[in-house]
């Protein structure tokens, strides 16, 4: 065996060792750069993940599409507590379609509209996440605010889940978090309508000023705003109701039991999710200000501060 052969064999062996040594768990199934993000679809440890610029936007179990989603998607079921007879729901932001999938499965009678800005996300969601556009689920490829401004429809619930993601984390598009936006959304809600806002930020300091600002801004339009923090990720779902009536956890648990008994909501974890309810506002309300179209530094100073 000469040196060259020896070297070749050694190189081949190293390559083989490297290949077996590589984790087979994470595999990029598809990737594309759209006008907005570098989007990847990754299969990892039995889950399929939708990633924008490296972040995790959506996750679903490859074995059972009804599990594996992030917890905030289940917090999007809280509007039923205020209206057990919802028929029209708008979701702003598609991603991997977790929210839509759960709504289509558990409430097949509900008319869903989804607004998604990025056409690439719509096709990826349909192809890789089995998001279904049906007679009761229409996807509109446009900006959420532009859609709300033009539609004549009234919704029982509007679920806000639109984010843009960069190298330094996720940002709320500022025009979807201002007083003018919530006024527009409120005008498109039915009498007892509810708006849910998935806010990336939490009460322990991480982007707390964003959470506080969005809370305060929603409170300037909706008579009541409640918080439902997720336990698995740093998200809080803010629930703004057109109903002026204050509620308590005991009252909501009673409603949850009642609508579960009537088979309105059959989501397995529903009563557990309701217990995430927090009546008290965030502690930083006096420090933050209401966001307006004129002044909303959501991607600037507000993001930089991670304090309580």
């Amino acid at each position: 065996m000469n040196a060259v052969t020896k070297f070749t064999l050694l190189a081949l062996a190293s390559l083989a060792w490297l290949m077996t040594g590589l984790p087979a768990r994470a595999q990029t199934v598809y990737q594309v750069t759209s006008a907005y993000h570098h989007i990847s679809v990754i299969d990892s440890s039995g889950y399929r993940v939708l990633s924008f610029n490296g972040s995790w936007e959506s996750r679903v179990s490859l074995a059972n599409p009804l599990v594996g989603h992030f917890e905030y998607c289940e917090l999007f079921h809280t509007p039923w507590l205020w209206n057990p007879a919802m028929t029209n729901v708008l979701v702003v932001g598609l991603g991997g379609g977790s929210t839509q999938r759960l709504y289509q499965h558990y409430y097949p009678f509900v008319n869903l509209d989804t607004v998604e800005l990025d056409p690439a996300v719509v096709s990826i969601s349909k192809y890789y996440f089995q998001t279904k556009e049906t007679a009761r689920h229409k996807i509109h490829t446009m900006d959420g605010r532009v859609y709300l401004r033009r539609t004549q429809k009234k919704y029982d619930a509007i679920l806000m889940d639109a984010y843009s993601t960069g190298r330094y984390g996720s940002f709320i598009p500022y025009h979807l978090a201002t007083k003018e936006f919530f006024t527009l959304a409120s005008a498109n809600l039915t009498e007892n309508g509810v708006l849910c806002y998935n806010v990336i930020g939490n009460l322990n300091g991480f982007r707390a000023d964003i959470l506080g600002s969005v809370y305060k801004t929603m409170r300037s339009v909706f008579p009541q705003v409640w918080m439902f923090p997720a336990s698995d990720t740093g998200n809080v779902v803010l629930v703004g109701t057109k109903s002026k009536e204050p509620v308590t956890l005991a009252e909501l648990e009673k409603r949850a039991r009642s609508i579960a008994k009537d088979k309105v909501v059959t989501l397995p974890n529903f009563e557990k999710r309701v217990r995430a309810f927090r009546a008290q506002p965030p502690a930083n309300l006096s420090r933050v200000s209401v966001l307006t179209d004129d002044y909303a530094p959501v991607d600037g100073v507000l993001t930089g501060t991670n304090r309580r």
């Binding site: 006008a35 907005y36 900006d143 532009v146 598009p173």
Partner: peptide
């Protein structure tokens, strides 16, 4: 660009 965003949506265009 910031001003136009709220009316035309999506930052890219």
């Amino acid at each position: 660009a910031r001003f136009l965003l709220k009316d035309f949506g999506g930052a890219f265009y």
